[in-house]
Design a protein around this nucleic acid. Structure first.
Lengths: 200, 200
DNA sequence: GTCTATAAATCGATAGAC
DNA sequence: GTCTATCGATTTATAGAC
């Protein structure tokens, strides 16, 4: 049994946690470049210089948010896939879980999906590795379902990308106050994706 | 017969056209706030001050791009819908056309979909009106298809949003050099969306 | 209508006291 | 580890010559 990777750098430090939440709010709300380090610091109750005691730069904050966000999504996905007894159940559960995560964590999801290009090239590569793990889970389930005869698709990659598009776009339009709850959205997309793969 | 609204302010002025294209490239590539007016001006072959002869501000450039982009998408959609003889044909054609547009015009599409929040409140309202026209076309077709018995959906609004998510997300992942052509993508999504509405 | 030059404000990040 | 103060670079936008 290995010790799980800490989800945050120094996640037991309350000031670091506050900075993390402040940056997540600000980046999701205004975007990376429209957010100032002063903005983040004041939301966290610190002076402008306080940020740099805990993070090397504004880009470092974005990177840590992206990394932790991806890891959280990947873990939620893997847990959902592990419990399933068939490709149909697995796909429905994984998409449902992922869609719900995109709604509940819509700030982090937005940063993960839409602020990616503002990471340094090295950090882009690292985050891309995590993203490919996630994409691979969905594509793998569809491949299994086609092999077992449960699914009927023209192109596995095209269908996997379409399924992920449904989910990712939740981060664009979701905000607290929309009609549906995150649970509703997850359930809706769990059903819709079974139509996409010809399983219902 | 009314004269069509010019798609560009002073669209017959070659300098304005060059500025427009330079801004579209830059905003799509780096985002609104990461793009400098110097960057736009130099891409258009002008001095930093040259921008302000033709546009009031950087935000004005973003607004004009968003407005013209939305109008182009809406017109392409309306033309596709007008030619169809059934809800099934209409939905397939509209989604196919819209997806193809998002790939071919992926720079403008990206600006339209992801830089919206950087518009002024007044300009957000104006662009939102255009966007609701587009959403209404898709939702209207699905409503017709349900009424005629061609489609079978649980919730019309949820399904319309899902169909649009497929299309909108093209602007996030598409770039020249991906495996499929814009025509391929349009054809793929025209078929996939018929599955979403239970028509195939 | 385009230029050079620059104003005026703001940014990310650092220095050094405590 | 947090602060005040500020550096140095960069930004949007304007002034005024041509």
């Amino acid at each position: 049994m290995t010790v799980p990777t800490p989800s945050l750098p120094a996640h037991d430090n309350p000031t670091v946690v506050r900075l993390f939440e402040a940056a997540a709010d600000a980046f999701a709300d205004k975007g990376f470049h429209a957010t100032t380090t002063r903005d983040i610091a004041s939301r966290a109750g610190l002076s402008p210089a306080g940020v740099y005691v805990h993070f090397a730069s504004k880009e470092d904050l974005l990177f840590q948010l992206s990394r932790v966000g991806h890891e959280g999504a990947r873990d939620a996905l893997a847990a959902a896939a592990a419990e399933a007894n068939s490709p149909t159940e697995a796909l429905s559960e994984v998409i449902s879980t992922f869609a719900q995560w995109h709604a509940e964590q819509y700030q982090v999801a937005r940063i993960v999906q839409y602020e990616f290009r503002h990471l340094s090239p090295d950090h882009q590569r690292e985050v891309l590795t995590l993203r490919r793990e996630i994409d691979g889970v969905v594509e793998g389930i569809i491949t299994e379902g086609v092999a077992s005869g449960e699914f009927c698709v023209e192109d596995t990659r095209v269908t996997a990308l379409a399924a992920l598009s449904l989910v990712v776009d939740v981060a664009r339009w979701y905000h607290p106050g929309v009609r549906r709850t995150p649970e509703d959205i997850g359930a809706d997309y769990g059903r819709l994706v079974l139509r996409l793969v010809g399983a219902s």
